[in-house]
Each structure stands twice: as C-alpha cells, then as structure tokens.
Computed example of a mutant assay.
Amino acid sequence: MLENFIQSLQEKVCCTNDFQDGTKFRKKDRALQCKYIELNQLYKKYIVLDIDRPGAAFLWEEKGLPPPTIITINPEKATCHYLYELKTPVIYTHNGRRAPQKYYEAVDLALTHALEADLNYIGKFTRNPLYSNHLVITHPVQYELEDFQEWHLELASVKKKASHLDCSGYGRNSTIFHKLRFIAYPVVKSFTNFEIFYGEMEKQAFELNAEFAVNSKACLAAKEVMGIAHSVSKYCWKHRHSIDQMKFRGVMQLPKEMTIREKQIAAASHTHHQRKKNSLEHILAAALALKSQGKAVTQKAVATHSKYSLDTVKRNWGAVDKKFGLYIHAV
C-alpha cells in the first residue's frame, strides 16, 4: 500500500516539515523524508480526510464505514489523516471529464460528513505516512468510486453544508460562481498553462469566499469552493479562444427592480420564443431549398431536410403554407 503511495507522487514534490517555514519542491526521495507532502492534484489517486479529534484511528470502524487504505497518526495528539486509495485515479487536467470529478467530490464530501472530518481541509497536503515519527496503519484495500455506495453514504445530499452553515448556501455558491466567472472571462487568454490559470482562479474563489466571513455570514466549505473554481476554470479554458465573442446572461436587460422569480419567468419565455423562432427559420429555409431544387415541398421532406421532427414541422406548417402558397399538404 505504501509503495502505491510513493508511485502516485510526482517526481518533484512540494513538501515541508513546518508550514510556518513555507513549502519547497524537492525530488521525491528527499520529499519523502518530510513531515507533510503534497499529493498529486492532477491525477487524484486518494480521497484524503483530516480527522481532527483524538483517538480517531478506528473511528471508521465505530461508524460502520469502509476501512481507509492508509491511516497516518500524529503521535502527539492522536489525530489522523485517512487516505482511501482509488483503483482508477480521477483526472483533473483540462482534458479531464467533469462527471467523474463530480462523483469524486461527492464521495469525498459524503465521507467528510460521515466521519465528521474537517470541512475546510482541501486534501492537498497530507501527513507523510513514510515520515519516521508518524504512526501508520494500512489496510490492503483499493476502491472504485461506486464501491462507497455499499456503505450507504448520502451522496444525494452532499450539496448540503454542515449544520453550522446557514440555509443560504445556494446563494453563496451562486454568488461565488458568478463573480468568479466574470473575473475569469477577461483574463483567461493571458494564461498559457491550465494549471496556473486554475491556481489563480482557486485563489480568487477563496478570496470571494472569505468575504462572507467579513459580512458575518458562514463561508462555504473549502471543497465546495474548489469545485466552483474548477468548473469555472475548465469552462473558460475550453472556450478561451472564443470567449470574448460569446453572449452571457443579461441580454434581455431586465429591470433591476424585478424579483428573481419574475426574471426567471421572463427568461424562460424569452428562451422559448427564441427557440421557436429559430425552428421556424430553419424549416422555412429547408422548404425554400426543396422548392429551388424542383422537389415536392412536403412535411416529411422538410422534416428530413431541416433535421427537425415531423411534429415540429407540422406545428409550423401554416407559416410554410403562407410563405410558399402551398395548397396540398401532402406528407
């Protein structure tokens, strides 16, 4: 199990013996002599939890939860880091798929709640299980993300914050998301490396989150903030070459005094009419193309040519008839 841990690390690893002295990149063999070591953040091989309570080494057993692959114990305080090894690492590069990332984050947060672990721990640095003064317990187990469902973790409710957070979590989540994306849009083109861009967005997201504390509101859990930062970063990076030509929310220029509910209704109506208009335009263009080629303008032919369903064409057939003077509505 410890050999797998060593192999999961990058060749140069950020590490430290005391965070007050800062961190430093060292070659893997030297980094493994340090007290704290950074896990690979681009290929996440472990779900890591900080159990900040004395005597936590067997807490997983008390709560009927899966055994961690590695338990690293602080001998002075008897607090622990739990490391659950994954058979398949979750990729967090810009090419990584968001679905497995969300699944990883859901399992991570569910385990955090179930084991009453530190919600503000982000799983970046862990106690080094090979450090000479740490006590270590290992179990010969690896997991697929799906395996954790066997322990009835509440994955469906992982978006709920801890009990000390107020019920406005959705508002805070949304606030950080929208503020961060507007920070990201104008600057993404100035970056040449996704990891550096993501690091900057993560920093900005945590600064936005800290504003809630200034305003006497509870902050979001660190893992929630990281998820927002990654979503925004990945989207902006993917569209960085065209992002300044894209249209974002606000095209309707709705009055500020409108309530959110009123804006949602207006936006839904606008979207419906816009889609209907676009459908009709494509259907008319298909009918014109058929007519110009000397082909019969039938509902079935227009549906095939426009790639819309026959039902959609039928709903718009009156406009086609009016446009082209059709009198025989053959199918």
Rank of each mutant, 00 (worst) to 15 (best):
V313P: 03
T192H: 14
Q10I: 03
I196L: 13
R275P: 00
Q149R: 12
K27A: 04
S132W: 00
F197A: 07
S163E: 10
H241Q: 14
V313W: 03
N4M: 11
L290R: 03
E207I: 11
A110S: 12
S168H: 11
I196R: 12
V158L: 09
A266P: 01
P75F: 04
T88Q: 15
G250T: 05
F191P: 09
N4V: 04
A210M: 05
K189N: 12
A221Y: 05
C219W: 01
Q293S: 05
H178Y: 15
Y36K: 09
S309F: 02
T23I: 04
G227Q: 15
D147T: 06
L220Q: 04
Y143I: 10
K179E: 13
Y143E: 09
I265F: 05
Y170Q: 14
K276M: 11
T126Y: 06
Y92G: 06
E76A: 10
A56D: 04
R249W: 11
P140E: 11
A156F: 12
Y43E: 09
C14H: 08
A78K: 12
A319F: 15
A229E: 00
S233R: 12
H239S: 12
E200I: 10
H113N: 10
T126R: 06
G64P: 07
T69W: 06
T138M: 02
H273G: 00
L155V: 01
E200W: 12
Q41D: 00
L326P: 01
K314M: 07
N209L: 06
G199E: 05
G171Y: 05
L135H: 15
V141I: 14
G227Y: 11
V225W: 09
A99N: 12
V214C: 01
I37C: 03
R97M: 13
A289Y: 12
A266W: 09
L2E: 02
S216N: 15
K24W: 00
N209Y: 08
K323E: 13
G169H: 00
H272K: 14
I51N: 00
I176M: 02
K291S: 14
H152W: 09
I47F: 05
G96S: 03
P140L: 02
N173A: 08
F206Q: 08
C15R: 01
D50T: 02
S242K: 14
T138E: 09
P66E: 02
V158R: 14
L145Q: 08
Y131Q: 05
K295R: 11
D18K: 03
